[in-house]
Design a protein around this nucleic acid. Structure first.
Lengths: 135, 135
DNA sequence: CTACAGTCTGTAGTGACTACAGGGTCAAGA
DNA sequence: TCTTGACCCTGTAGTCACTACAGACTGTAG
C-alpha cells in the first residue's frame, strides 16, 4: 500500500467511526468503493477521508442518510444553486423544532405525573393511575 | 362470540392501535394471549382493553416496551412499594431532558449554518462548507 | 350464493447501525 | 522460519417498535 493510502482502520480512527459502519456506508452507496490491495484490503485516499468526515459531521447534526446522500450529490455539483441545500437544512431544522416541542410537552406530562407520586404502595400510585384508563 | 367479547378489530379501533401492533404486543409478551373463538379468532375482554390502553398511553409518553413491561408487572402487584414505579418514570424523564438539551444545541448549530447561507451556488455554500472538513 | 370485510399465520422490511462467526493477511519479534 | 497478534475480509443476524404484505380462512349482509 502506497504512502497516501489508508486502511479502513485508519479511516475509522481519523473520523471516530466504527469499521463496520464504514463498510455499511459503502454498501449503502454513501462512500464509493475504494481500490483494493493485493490482499483484498480496502485502500482509501484523502477524498474518501473527506467524504466520510462530511457524512459523520452531517450525521452528528442529525441529518438522515437519505438527506446526506442528497447533500453529497449537491456538493459534488459545484455550479448548482445552493437553494436545494438550504431547503434540506431548513426541512431538517423544522423537524428538530417539532421534536423539541413534542419532548417539552412530554416532559411537562411526566413532571405532573411524578410530582403527584406520594411513594406509597402501588395500589395508590398516581403514576400507575395516570397511565390507567378511566373506567 | 359473547356480548362482552371483543375482536382484535374492536380493540384496535377503541385504542387507536393497528391490528398488527396488537398481535405484535402479544408476541412480545405485553398483552396476554386471549381466548379463541371456534373460528380461531382472538376473543378479548375488558381486562385486555384496559391493559392495551395502559400500554398505548405509556407509549405516547415515550416509555420503551421494556419499561412498560416493568410498569405492568408493578401495577399488577398492588401491595408493592411505588418507589420502583417512580424510579422508572424519573429515569425516563431524565432521558427526555437529555434529548431536549441535545436537540437544542443541535438547533443552534443548524440556525448558525442556515443563517450564513447566501443562497448562491454550491461552490460558495456556507452550509456545505460547514459540513466539510477543514483541510 | 356471493361479495367483501375481517381475521389468521408467517415472513420480511424500515433506519442506522452493531455484533458476531469463520476465515484470510500482514508485520514484528524469537 | 515460525508464531503471535493485530488487522482485515464476507456474510448474516440482531437491535427497536412497529408496518406491510402474501396467501389463506371466517363471518356476515344482501
Amino acid at each position: 500500500m502506497n504512502a497516501h493510502a489508508l486502511t479502513i482502520g485508519h479511516l475509522a480512527r481519523e473520523t471516530g467511526t466504527k469499521v463496520e459502519t464504514i463498510r455499511f456506508y459503502e454498501k449503502s452507496g454513501l462512500l464509493p468503493a475504494p481500490a483494493r490491495t493485493e490482499g483484498n484490503y480496502r485502500s482509501y485516499d484523502r477524498a474518501h477521508l473527506n467524504r466520510l468526515s462530511f457524512i459523520r459531521r452531517a450525521r452528528d447534526l442529525g441529518f438522515s442518510l437519505d438527506q446526506i446522500r442528497d447533500l453529497l450529490a449537491l456538493s459534488d455539483d459545484r455550479g448548482q444553486s445552493c437553494a436545494a441545500v438550504d431547503a434540506i437544512a431548513k426541512e431538517h431544522r423544522a423537524e428538530v423544532e417539532r421534536k423539541i416541542t413534542d419532548l417539552r410537552s412530554l416532559k411537562k406530562e411526566l413532571d405532573r405525573m411524578i410530582d403527584q407520586c406520594g411513594c406509597g404502595v402501588v395500589a395508590d400510585c398516581r403514576i400507575i393511575e395516570s397511565l390507567s384508563p378511566r373506567q
